[in-house]
Simulated assay, not measured.
Amino acid sequence: MRILSALCLALFPLAAFAQEDAVRLYAPPSLVDTGVFKHILPRFSLKTQVRVTLVDAANDADLVIGPDGRALFQDAVTTWHLEQRDTDNAKVARFAEWLRSDVGQRTLFGYAPEGAALFQPPAKTETVVVAVEISGDVGLGAEVSALKCARCHAVTEAGRKNDIGSTPSFFLLRGMGDWQERFEVFYVLKPHGAFTQIDGVTEPFPPERPSPIVPIQMTLEEVEAVLAYVESLPPADLGAPLEHQ
């Protein structure tokens, strides 16, 4: 009995920590009652090891599904939007990105408890394209790239001869349509998340899972500077898209 009590006491702090470490999501009861979150949340957590819990109040949430934010999906009556309230937490950003991704959308629209899908993509609206100005320091970005990225990536023309062949050069990445998004959130993409720390953004490495290599420490200012530096590079010619026969 004493052993069982001691074990329970030992597990309580771990449970509390897991709860605090989870991404907190709020959705109206009418949406929760459909059962859709029992369908999508375990699938996201299984792939990413990021825990998401539903909370009872929007004020306590990192992410809110409701009338505000970016349109995410719709049912027969309502268009549901995603509002990201915590913009600094990498796990919150990862879940929000997954919900908007092709995989997340397929998971959501695949929920059909009685054989008929409950949700579908939101109705398309006129899109206003707004140019996003990248205001980082290009010179600082070149220095940071050479110091912290060149161990794996070619970040200059001269470095193309010394990079790891399995990793794309900055020039190749610059030629991709989503290059800006890749560099904005690179620290949560594999394998960077295992050895990269962004001051005030990422969580410290757990003692039982330290960085496998000398960790890379960066500030948000340095991330923005690298983004500006990459924007200044000539994109590699990736050729014409392949056509399927």
Rank of each mutant, 00 (worst) to 15 (best):
M1Q: 09
R2D: 13
R2Y: 12
L4F: 02
S5W: 13
C8F: 11
C8G: 09
P13W: 11
P13Q: 14
P13F: 09
L14S: 05
A16L: 12
F17I: 12
A18D: 08
A18T: 06
Q19P: 07
Q19S: 07
D21H: 01
A22L: 06
A22T: 04
R24K: 15
L25M: 04
L25C: 12
Y26F: 14
Y26A: 04
P29K: 06
L31S: 15
K38S: 05
H39C: 14
I40D: 08
P42K: 02
R43Y: 02
K47A: 12
Q49L: 15
Q49Y: 07
R51D: 07
R51E: 10
T53L: 15
T53G: 04
L54T: 02
L54N: 08
L54V: 12
D56A: 10
D56L: 01
D56F: 00
A61P: 11
L63H: 03
V64F: 00
P67T: 15
G69S: 14
R70I: 05
A71M: 08
L72D: 14
F73I: 06
F73K: 13
A76P: 00
T79R: 10
T79K: 04
W80G: 01
H81D: 03
H81L: 06
T87D: 07
N89A: 08
A90S: 12
V92H: 01
A93H: 12
A93K: 14
R94M: 11
A96D: 05
G104E: 04
Q105V: 06
R106A: 00
T107A: 00
F109N: 10
P113K: 08
E114T: 13
A116P: 00
P122M: 07
A123W: 11
E126H: 05
V130E: 06
A131D: 10
A131C: 00
V132P: 00
V132E: 14
E133V: 08
E143C: 00
S145V: 05
A146H: 05
L147H: 10
K148W: 06
K148T: 07
K148L: 12
C149M: 00
C149I: 09
R151A: 02
H153T: 10
A154M: 15
T156Y: 07
E157Q: 15
E157I: 14
G159M: 09
G159Q: 07
K161M: 08
D163F: 09
D163A: 10
L172A: 12
R174N: 08
R174C: 13
G175P: 01
G175M: 01
M176D: 09
G177T: 15
W179V: 06
R182S: 07
R182M: 09
E184F: 00
V185M: 15
V185C: 09
V185E: 14
F186W: 03
Y187G: 00
V188K: 12
K190N: 07
P191V: 12
H192Q: 11
A194H: 09
I198F: 10
G200Y: 08
V201R: 11
T202L: 03
T202R: 04
P206S: 14
R209W: 02
R209Y: 10
S211E: 07
P212I: 13
V214M: 01
P215R: 10
T219G: 06
E221V: 01
E222Q: 06
V226M: 08
Y229L: 04
V230R: 03
L233A: 01
L233R: 05
P234W: 11
P235H: 08
L238C: 14
L238D: 03
L238P: 01
G239L: 14
A240Q: 04
P241S: 07
Q245S: 04
